[in-house]
Design a protein around this nucleic acid. Sequence first.
DNA 1: CTGCATCCAAAGGGATACTG
DNA 2: CAGTATCCCTTTGGATGCAG
Lengths: 129, 129
Amino acid sequence: MSSTHDKVGYLPESKYVKITPDAAATGIQDAIRILEGRWKLLIIMNLFAYGTLRFSQLEKSIPDVTQKMLIQQLRALENDGIVSRIVYPQVPPKVEYSLTETGKELCPALDALLKWAAQRNPKSEYGHY
Amino acid sequence: MSSTHDKVGYLPESKYVKITPDAAATGIQDAIRILEGRWKLLIIMNLFAYGTLRFSQLEKSIPDVTQKMLIQQLRALENDGIVSRIVYPQVPPKVEYSLTETGKELCPALDALLKWAAQRNPKSEYGHY
DNA sequence: CTGCATCCAAAGGGATACTG
DNA sequence: CAGTATCCCTTTGGATGCAG
């Protein structure tokens, strides 16, 4: 489970300079696991862009997603504290989704990932300076 | 596939201020897809820490990984341009793995993810200021 | 030492129908 | 409107054995 190596310094521009590769990988994997799933980033980015959306609005904003998958991934994000869900007890039902503070704090990390992806694959259409 | 909304400004501290949620999600997903896989981050972090490692050294540095999975994920990282593979034509065989420039450039993004994960889950053991 | 091939179990994702 | 339930396919990961 744990490496036999001593603690090492890496991630140069980081304040985290004395943890093992294993510990760093574990932390990053926690983040990746939350973002994994075919529709999660679409959900997050739409909530980033539009603030608060109802279930049906998310459904329209994300073509091709099925209700089952949308619910499933929303539940996962909710359990991970990324998305908040507010139910208005009325008929017909109304449920609003938005990002939590923790969810919004993902912004710098996602931006770094996007920047890297854009540099790596310049001919892609997402993001250019 | 594409959203019907106009371009929006978000990702506040980014230079990418005029792309759609869809485009941003696509770019980030490209990055996530490369990092997905149970052993990939362990491989990357170990190569970050130790520079160059032979196949057998990686095997020892990553307890519980099977040869099949190690090879498989190394090949995937190689195809994505993250890891370079150098074969020394000798008997017995010797193969060295290290990060490419593109792989090393992942550092800031991984660091941002680690920072977020640490803030989100302070009791975890990975990384503290 | 480095790696490929086979077989198998589990998880993820999707189509469809139904409901308070 | 906002879900739930069921069935099924695909992908991922792991165990084991063999080979240059």
